[in-house]
Write a protein that binds this DNA or RNA. Structure first.
Lengths: 142, 142
DNA sequence: GCGGTCTGCCTCGGACCGAAGCCGGTGGGA
DNA sequence: TCCCACCGGCTTCGGTCCGAGGCAGACCGC
């Protein structure tokens, strides 16, 4: 019942890009790692997953690095977490109301509940974009 | 980002007790395991944890077993899950706005978000009692 | 009251799996 | 030729899931 560090790290990395307004000039993995205090090799493969999901673009060679693929308003935390942690669900015990999944008492009722919880989390995270985070970050605290 | 099987199993077991209206006569672990199709030894220690949390009472010897400690209306899913899975949170990366926790950009903003998500899940599960589940179970599907 | 049996209580341990993180090599760009 | 993204594989670590086995309390028949 918790977000893995991958989700947290990925969010921090992209938030870092958004904070520096780096929608054009690439930022190297090393710079991101320094600014966010994250382990560099680990962050590397996380960024790779984010690229695979189409959330960032990369540029190789000298002066290369990563750039947000879309505007911060268009990137939600749900997309980030889903990209590195897989689909956002609460409990993976199959689907309710399907073949032999509900052959014991109360089972499919609980499955429905977990599904509702997962959906609620998704809704929450879909409404939080990187732009919102930037606003929160600059508006409230350090 | 998911409920462990412990939480699911514990919920199923208590729901089974509630469905059979066993607020007085004890039900043995073996019977619960049969009705819910759960591994009996595993279920045993889960029930032990639930007893430690004060959600069920036990009776030893012949004709012994487990009984709900309170009325189904008084037992929420949040209590059950918290009893077997620990506190319900989304991401355990420390607390926001404390000593050196927010010394890197955007960190405490994200911490606040995870905290919000966790709180939302807790609220949802606190509003779902065993009595609600019984109603859902008997009212809608098999 | 006494032993047997039924049950919960408790602990130990191990298989299994995913998370977390490091490393070396490859190849494309300036 | 240097820089840096890319690409795997690989290890370590801890948690989950579950079984085995023994101990202790409760009720029974006698």
């Amino acid at each position: 019942m918790k977000v893995s560090t991958r989700g947290d790290y990925a969010s921090r990395a992209l938030l870092s890009l958004a904070l520096h307004g780096a929608t054009q000039t690439p930022t190297s993995v090393r710079d991101i790692a320094e600014r966010t205090a994250l382990p560099q090799p680990y962050l590397e493969q996380i960024l790779l997953a984010l690229k695979g999901a189409g959330l960032v673009r990369s540029k190789r060679g000298v002066g290369g690095g990563y750039v947000l693929a879309r505007e911060p308003e268009e990137i939600s935390l749900a997309q980030i977490v889903a990209a590195v942690d897989g689909p956002i669900v609460a409990g993976d015990f199959g689907e309710p109301h399907e073949n032999g999944a509900c052959d014991h008492e109360g089972q499919c009722v609980l499955l429905a509940v977990w599904a509702e919880v997962g959906e609620q989390i998704r809704n929450k995270l879909q409404n939080l974009t990187l732009a919102d985070m930037v606003t929160r970050s600059t508006g409230t605290a350090a």
